[in-house]
Design a protein around this nucleic acid. Structure first.
Lengths: 112, 112
DNA sequence: GTATCGTACAACCAAATGGTTGTATATGAG
DNA sequence: CTCATATACAACCATTTGGTTGTACGATAC
């Protein structure tokens, strides 16, 4: 049930974007409800421009998108991209599980 | 069913470590089978020291560990840490699902 | 023993990252 | 219209990252 393939470069961006507590918090908040950039900026101890850059990194990764509403930009989380990241991690776990089951087979063969 | 809590800093390291194609490949290979650092280094178009640094980043993130075997260091993937990352992503997805179900409730209320 | 292999680690470098301030521009309020 | 708000974006800076080469050292092969 593979949905879409992310390029290596896109995958890098997704994980890179998630490797920062502020950005993870922005993702949480924008998945929970629609928030403007200035509302986000009010929450963090950094400049508006810094928050803007974090949102831009998340947008480039496809983890959020922005829509114009009046003079505000509403940031919305993109659950699909999170699912892509989950699928990649699941595929890693599958590799492990296959190894375990290979080991089980081996043991079943060797110890009759 | 929370297993362990990763500190923010550890979480950063995990996602940062996964934000690189070479490192993701190392994780895949070390989950599949035990591999020495020099075996890994032979696969990538970069110096031994560069691969060593990638392994060190993965080790600091808890995504692999190293054991000594003779003069070799065997690198082994750590599926538990991958599971931690998955749980974090799942918690983000849950936020989204809760929002959808709140929206459903609202619609059920408003449209009798 | 000596030579070689596998690893560790330091020093160095260019590029990317994560923050800042400052300026410009469009929208909404009064 | 004027003023304040929300955003965009450039320029700048310190730190981190991702690579390099070189040196050192323990373990194995011969």
């Amino acid at each position: 049930m593979v949905v879409y393939e992310l390029s290596e470069e896109q995958t890098n961006k997704v994980f890179r974007a998630l490797a920062d507590a502020t950005r993870r918090d922005i993702v949480r908040r924008t998945l929970h409800a629609e928030v403007s950039i200035s509302e986000l900026a009010a929450s963090y101890d950094m400049s508006f421009a810094a928050v803007q850059k974090h949102v831009a990194a998340l947008e480039a990764a496809g983890l959020v998108n922005k829509i114009a509403r009046g003079r505000e930009r509403i940031v919305r989380g993109q659950p699909d991209t999170i699912r892509h990241a989950q699928e990649l991690l699941s595929s890693l776990e599958d590799i492990w599980r296959q190894r375990i089951s290979r080991l089980d087979d081996f043991l079943a063969d060797e110890t009759p």
